[in-house]
Amino acid sequence: MSELLLEIEDITLRFGGVTAIHGVSCHVNEGELFSIIGPNGAGKTSIFNTVSQVYRPQSGDIRWKGKSIMGTRPDRVAAMGIARTFQNIELFPQMTVVDNLLTGRHVAMKQSWLAGAMWVGAAKREEMAHRRKVEDIIDFLEIEQWRKHPVALLPYGFQKRVELGRALAMDPELLLLDEPVAGMNLEETEDMARFILDIRRELGIAMIMVEHDMGLVMDIADRIMVLDFGEKIAEGTPEEVQSDPNVIAAYLGSSDLHVANE
């Protein structure tokens, strides 16, 4: 059995009177593709934000490789090997694709501001080496033609890809994907699914994927957790989740699950 990577234990997150997450526990193993589904406002994005420690849950514990990360600064959490993409694209719009991905290499790079300012040999070599790494990711995601474009000028589907690339550039051990195919057409969705599967197969990176596209989730997820109003109502393999009475009740009338059942 593979090792435990991330454990979320009984976390509760409140915003004033709103309870976004209510006593949720789950875990992710090494190399696993774990998926979180649930209606809008169920608290999926909030889970990501607690894992990155952008939000601090009022109670519960989050452990990374057995050690609690509660109260750790977001940038430190990132440096531990947790990367993420955002539901609404959060790229650096004025930077080129290459610079966005190079920003993802920030933690891996070591040069000081002074070495960079003086453009000393070591800083120069470091920039080159990481540039090569970034080019590999650009090839992998098939975004060569956009390399030198400011990302704000890219079509939506490609922006989503660049954001995935930026997260990959961080050499993560766990990747948090918030609705990676939202707003995409069928072809773009298939491309993205292919990239996600390749990431798991070739790079062995564990992932948590939040997604509304049930077809995609049921196809590629190892395990699924279902949230509703901030509470976990089911967890298990795609088959278990689809036949769970709680889930069927929560999704009653929704065509999403039918698609998956066909």
Binding site: S52, V54, R73, P74, D75, V77, A78, A79, A83, R84, F86, E90, L91, F92, P93, Q94, M95, D99, L102, T103, G104, H106, V107, M109, Q111, S112, W113, G116, A117, M118, W119, A123, E126, E127, R166, M170
Partner: peptide, 27 residues
Amino acid sequence: NIIRTRTGRALQAIRDRDIAAEVMGIP
């Protein structure tokens, strides 16, 4: 040189998207 290397990218990242910059490991 500062603008086109690691430090400059970090500063621009903070300017454009401070939360995204932080969860990418930029203090």
